[in-house]
């Protein structure tokens, strides 16, 4: 009886190890998602990782359409468009979210540099749009007041 129980424990342990290994390998199935970009932390640290040389130009050529007051932080509609040329990617960051980088679109030249989505916002904070072109990285930001936090959603 005891013997049987030992075997059971051994097998369960082996199964747990296999499952953990399986979980560990799963992110590698993803092609371009980088864990370090989406690491929790402060906005400055995330910006440093995304833009190692810290050369960000503030511009008014990016239009960030987002409500000034968001009634519900769980769903904040946002649209970004830009008149800049040779856009490679558009990233959206929320200043005070635990993971500041919300999304990064890598766009082909066959698309207009215009995207929309919906963000979660933990609290009143700045929303930052970063546009990467062949010339450099450009930024526009907008303060959004959140009356109900996004923690519930």
């Amino acid at each position: 009886m005891t013997n049987y129980r030992r075997q059971f424990i051994k097998k369960t342990a082996a199964l747990a190890v296999t499952m953990a290994a399986g979980l560990w390998h799963m992110p590698s199935a993803l092609a371009f998602w980088k864990a370090e970009d989406f690491a929790p932390g402060l906005l400055d640290a995330t910006l440093k990782r995304l833009v190692p040389n810290q050369k960000i130009t503030d511009t008014d050529q990016i239009t960030l359409k987002i409500p000034l007051i968001a009634e519900n932080g769980a769903v904040v509609p946002v649209s970004v468009s830009t008149t800049l040329d040779n856009v490679k990617s558009i990233s959206l960051l929320v200043e005070k979210n635990p993971i500041p980088l919300a999304i990064r679109f890598e766009l082909s030249p066959m698309l207009d540099a215009s995207v929309s989505t919906r963000l979660k916002m933990a609290e009143t904070a700045e929303v930052i749009a970063l546009v990467e072109t062949s010339d450099g990285i450009y930024r526009t930001k907008q303060q959004v007041k959140v009356t109900i936090g996004g923690c519930g959603g």
Binding site: L107, S108, M110, V115
Partner: peptide, 21 residues
């Protein structure tokens, strides 16, 4: 045409809009 990497800061039941030339 588009590769999108996102974190959990995107709302539940995510919505996206793109404009193709």
């Amino acid at each position: 045409l588009v590769n999108c990497a996102m974190g959990p800061s995107i709302s539940k039941d995510p919505y996206f809009a793109f404009m193709l030339k």
